[in-house]
Design a protein around this nucleic acid. Structure first.
Lengths: 231, 231
DNA sequence: TCGACTTTGTGCAGCGCTTCACAAAGGCAC
DNA sequence: GTGCCTTTGTGAAGCGCTGCACAAAGTCGA
């Protein structure tokens, strides 16, 4: 069978590459702040914490933006990566669930500086509605659909308790949202065409614990001190 | 050249598998709460959001804990995964940086319920020192090394501003810590033998923006409206 | 203008993870 | 006991990502 030869500029950037582009972007912004005009793949890779071959291959998926013998123009590369990620446009984000995490997210500087604008804070708890956080007033989540439609929200952050997450998810999808960032510790069920990314703070700690345990005693305790039925 | 044949119980669990074990654990806990005694790989996979072949292969790396024709004993599997992840022991965690995010983490229920105990909250800002959060008193970060040593802290969460992160990192490593969870938006430099895991809230949003852009107009705007020198 | 030097962009081999498909293994009905 | 049915555990193929190594391409000094 004949397989199609992938075109160079065909819109098919590997997921692994997309996941690293924000890393490069941050490293480049750091360089730009220090007034660096051009940077080699070697130096940029060092700043981003990857190896240089990988960096070059990643960037080659976007196009041929470097100059052999010189490196990459910092400003130009910032622009190209931003454009590829869609950060040259303005994204309206709504945060649902204004607990500790929701507040932290609303105040997080990393959003506004990258093309994201918090366009709404919503919560179901009347005791929280009306609070002023990061320049916004918390609204009741009854108005979720209205907020999404009126303010052109295209990305929703779910920071509610686990029990409420699926319902919120269904409602925002009903209102037309197709990109969701989920902090609640549940697996969300969504129709095709909707992207969900999940961040789970405790999972990361558990992975660390796994490796830490191995450092200490070479693996789980071997004693089968299990008192249940199987054994 | 002759390659070693990997032993079944050899301590070499793929990283991809380790990253999914916490997912299975959560799904299992959900089933246990509902009183389910046994579960098939098909049903558990559904609850965890993966496919069943992957689940079975993952579990097979831990051992042979299922019963053919029946499935897995929920309680027994919870115990085995917990043991493998090292959650049957008690981990003392210190959180450095008590801003919005640090507070959210200190109050996050997902920690305590999984073998993690917040043993210290530290911050460099005198205005924050002395605050009571989640039953603890915030201490000054001058005492970082002392807290780590005295309370047996083995995992440190860095939730400081980017500028302070590397310095905190160096200090905790100096105090003997080899597992770090980093929320600051910088690439930490650490010696061999130290594990760093990174969580970056804005990166996830940027990845979502990338996919959202593609849904809207099939990719980045093609107009090369760049006004810089290269072009 | 030319040659030496630097750095990019990429073909290719290797590796690890995913997925399929099925034989082996255990339970259950009779 | 025996045979059928369900479900696990796993060999093997497929796929995508990584990293090496180098030719191509561009700069810079003389």
């Amino acid at each position: 069978m004949i397989r199609r030869i992938p075109q160079a500029r065909e819109r098919g950037i590997p997921d692994a590459t997309v996941a690293r582009l924000p890393l490069y972007l941050r490293a480049l912004n750091g360089l730009a702040e220090r007034g660096t005009a051009t940077v080699s793949s070697e130096d940029l890779a060092l700043a981003a914490g990857v190896n240089s071959a990988k960096l070059r291959k990643d960037l080659s998926h976007l196009g041929s933006y470097g100059t052999r013998g010189v490196g990459y123009d910092v400003q130009y590369l910032i622009y190209q990566i931003s454009r590829e990620l869609g950060l040259t446009q303005d994204w309206a984000v709504a945060i649902v669930g204004v607990g500790n995490l929701g507040r932290a997210l609303a105040n997080y500087g990393g959003f506004v500086s990258r093309g994201f604008r918090v366009a709404g804070l919503l919560d179901a708890d009347p005791a929280v509605v009306g609070d002023h956080i990061a320049g916004l007033t918390v609204e009741h989540s009854d108005g979720l659909e209205a907020v999404i439609r009126k303010r052109g929200v295209s990305i929703v952050v779910i920071a509610t308790p686990a029990a409420a997450a699926q319902q919120v998810c269904d409602r925002v999808i009903g209102a037309g949202v197709t990109s969701i960032l989920n902090f609640a510790p549940v697996v969300l069920t969504v129709p095709d065409g909707v992207d969900v990314r999940k961040v789970d703070l405790s999972i990361e700690l558990q992975i660390l614990a796994f490796h830490e345990q191995r450092k200490i005693n070479g693996g789980p305790l071997m004693a089968e001190d299990w008192a249940g039925e199987a054994g």
